[in-house]
Design a protein around this nucleic acid. Sequence first.
DNA 1: CAAATAAACGGAGGCGCCTCCGATTAAACT
DNA 2: AGTTTAATCGGAGGCGCCTCCGTTTATTTG
Lengths: 202, 202
Amino acid sequence: MDSAEPKTTETAATAAEPTKLRADARRNRDKLIEVAAVVFPQKGVETSLEDIARQAGVGIGTLYRHFPTREHLVEVVYRRELESLAAAARELAEKHSPDVALEEWMRRFVGYIATKRGMSNSLRILMTSNSSLFAEGFGNMRGALDSLLKTASQQGYIRSDMDTADVMHALASIYSIPDSPEWRDRSLRLIGLLMDGLRAGK
Amino acid sequence: MDSAEPKTTETAATAAEPTKLRADARRNRDKLIEVAAVVFPQKGVETSLEDIARQAGVGIGTLYRHFPTREHLVEVVYRRELESLAAAARELAEKHSPDVALEEWMRRFVGYIATKRGMSNSLRILMTSNSSLFAEGFGNMRGALDSLLKTASQQGYIRSDMDTADVMHALASIYSIPDSPEWRDRSLRLIGLLMDGLRAGK
DNA sequence: CAAATAAACGGAGGCGCCTCCGATTAAACT
DNA sequence: AGTTTAATCGGAGGCGCCTCCGTTTATTTG
């Protein structure tokens, strides 16, 4: 029966890897991603892959089978976080008042960006070899921010004379703060400032 | 001449490293560069540095003292070749008729570019972290080509309705030929073609 | 449930990276 | 020429990369 879609109960919605994996394989794979997602932000993407395998409780061979190169692993982690960031926007919008949702989202955004510092090399290779990833990811972020802003301003929580591009610009400038131990705190303070400004002029 | 120049017998023209090195140190350093200049084009810049040290007859420690990172070594080789390419233009102009000089120079240019294939990663890192190197190098090449062309066309060896930009464009398109075993030959044939064209319409 | 099979595991092994420091040696000094 | 000094040498050692393949295990089949 080749005529139609192979009937699988899996919804393709969340777009997890479509490949069917044996139970243990899936478990190990997930564990590896989970560990990498913790370690990369802490120690940079140049961390020893053997370390990651060790912490995930699998052999180095297993890591390499799932992720043939460092970049593969980086990409998966990157994608996953990007998705969860978009999801967070929706969740926050449901559970908080619009302005709080916006602020909290921007804080997470900074947290996310922080992840990317130190990734420079691997990330740059990724960018040049696979730039669709970037376009896509960036588009999603813009969408998330857009809808948060729209809601907040329509309901009168923040001023309405700033558009998404303005705020993205502000966030981008935060990204460009030079690296330093206080980078994260400084960024979060700037977010606070930005939010005060948005609320004040409403 | 102006008063300020520190009077050293060294002409700064060739711009060798100004640092004074002990005789053995200089010897080893030069040997390393020489070997690297041969090996990089052959095996790509990802070749084992230990191999290079071995072939140069020095310990790996020595290599690392002179070139703290792979990129340092790559950069030095790159610079050196760029300089010798510019020098070649002057030499060729003296020893051959203008059109032959031009053709030969373009052939060498292709040989040089060939060197750069496979360097991609290290070279990309270099480009982003040190782009002056590129601007500079590129400018020199343009200058060299410019003067070769000018001479040849003024003396009637080639047509005069093509300017430097046109020819550089042609060379650039050669660079974009996809990698393959015949890359080099194909490129050289294209150079021949280009030269015939330049000579023909004079 | 047992046997068969295909898939996944995981670590040993070979290689390269890079650092560190005792041995070597060029150059300066007497 | 002999001594001193400071620069340089160079390889051992520790670590990470990645591959390869014998062993283990989930899943299918009877």
